[in-house]
Nucleic acid binder design. Structure first.
Lengths: 111, 111
DNA sequence: GCGGTATTTCTAGATTTACCGAAATACAAG
DNA sequence: CTTGTATTTCGGTAAATCTAGAAATACCGC
């Protein structure tokens, strides 16, 4: 995963509505939840919700599967874990002092 | 930390330039790095960099300390760990199957 | 106080975003 | 093939964001 992808994913979660959607999906677990459920639960107009869902899908954090007339949405746990892992590597999760060590794999890219 | 704060922090990292700035600061470690260093390293105009830095500071992920004419910037590791932790709790870091368990502390809020 | 370096604020244009009602599409049931 | 439910696309507006040059500010050394 490159920086751009990471930034896009973070951006997609950087909005209260979308973060709420994602959280609701995480809590819905592997089974996921229909768009309508999210709509009722979050009280967001359908068009708005659809707009936000698209963003989450674009960056790979959410998937959709059609079941007859309803669309089941699911949080992509693998993608999320990958994202968190990447961010954690960059940002030294729970080891503030690892900053020096982190520089060792710093030689590749520019930014 | 509430959802709004979390969203703001994620949003602040959801931009390639800012994410690069933050990463550079993480790698600079506890000592931090001057604005000028970031400017040269990232090749971003001062005014643009300043604008992005302000955002990171606003959400508490970066701090600044004046040393004579130069401003030292530092990643706030504690804030970042807090953020990652919170996100991890919500999103079941490395335990996709914990979704069911996560619902147990789901009864409090609306979204 | 003057000169010089470091950094921010001001300003402004281009782009993107969030929002949501109305209309359109997808699909199942009868 | 009509009706009803689920969801998206369309259209348009208001607000926020990114970008960067130019001017202003902060601070040190002399």
């Amino acid at each position: 995963m490159d920086l751009e992808t990471l930034a896009k994913r973070l951006d997609s979660l950087g909005n209260v509505t979308r973060l709420s959607v994602f959280r609701a999906l995480v809590r819905a677990g592997r089974d996921g939840a229909p768009v309508g459920y999210l709509q009722r639960r979050l009280g967001v107009p359908g068009s708005t919700l659809s707009h936000h869902l698209r963003k989450l899908i674009e960056v790979g954090l959410v998937t959709q599967e059609r079941q007859a007339t309803t669309l089941i949405c699911r949080a992509d746990f693998e993608a999320m874990n990958e994202t968190l892992g990447f961010l954690g590597n960059e940002c030294c999760r729970d080891l503030p002092l690892c900053a020096a060590g982190a520089e060792e794999d710093d030689r590749r890219d520019v930014a």
